[in-house]
């Protein structure tokens, strides 16, 4: 199923389907390797639930919830 990155459960492997941010944010996301087709896993959240920590290959990236909303991911799993 396809959902915004923010909504996938912890440790659920997913694939980036699309990046909907333009301009600087879009560029920054892409520069870090968050590009369509990349495999990502949400592995944690900061104490106040924002930002999120995402595993991308062998590195860990962090982005705010609002920024994660610009990333839609595809994963196999049951709706929660």
């Amino acid at each position: 199923m396809i959902k915004p990155l923010r909504q996938i459960p912890y440790d659920q492997p997913a694939t980036i389907a699309a990046i909907t941010a333009a301009g600087e944010l879009g560029r920054r996301l892409r520069d870090m390797g968050l590009t369509p087709g990349a495999a990502v896993t949400v592995i944690g959240k900061a104490p106040l639930n924002d930002p999120v920590a995402v595993r991308l290959k062998d590195s860990i990236l962090t982005l705010r919830n609002g920024e994660a909303d610009h990333i839609t991911v595809e994963f196999e799993g049951v709706a929660k």
Partner: peptide
């Protein structure tokens, strides 16, 4: 400004 950054190992 965006907070997209790396948490280095």
């Amino acid at each position: 400004t965006p907070f997209v950054m790396e948490l280095p190992p």
